[in-house]
Amino acid sequence: MANKENRDIFLSVIESNKGIIYKIANSYCASKEDRNDLVQEIILRLWQAFEQYNDDYKYSTWIYRIALNTAISNYRKEKVREKYFSPIFEPLLELEDVGGTTELEQTYSQLHQFILELKELDKALMLLYLEEKSYKEIAEIIGISESNVGTKISRLKNTLKEKFLKEKYK
């Protein structure tokens, strides 16, 4: 019973924070297959850690930490996960076709490409900045000082602006 209750709470936490998981998977994986695998691995890690969830932190902070740690360490793994994760073929997060031909979507795909090209930790930082997290919260999730967060984000923003300018005048 307790397990069922736990599972229901877990499902509602995932439901309310599905966007975070999707955004992280999308920022760390270029292909749909890799993204589905990563979503699955993240949800599995979250479920395994759910019993030890510490309510000193918000659910979103807890999810960011676990999902980012999973995504970053996933990059170092050799491609063996297909073997482990093959039992589940259907995606855990389903996305209806949202279209992608507008100017906004084209600019977004440039931004997405830029994020994909970033180093693993810079990617995490950029993602949290775009999610409008405070420097304090970013520092808590990443584990560096607030001033360091500020310096790095401003550096990343400058690189991003330069890239966009280059694209514009190509």
């Binding site: 599972r7 966007g19 997060l93 389903e94």
Partner: peptide
């Protein structure tokens, strides 16, 4: 940049659905 990100994912959020059955299975035996 922030607005662009927000607008894109707002659209995604609306059409993003979790596959409850599979997640239930995953947390159950899988």
């Amino acid at each position: 940049f922030v607005m662009l990100w927000k607008e894109h994912y707002e659209k995604i959020d609306q059409s993003l659905a979790i596959n409850k059955k599979i997640i239930r299975d995953l947390t159950n035996q899988k």
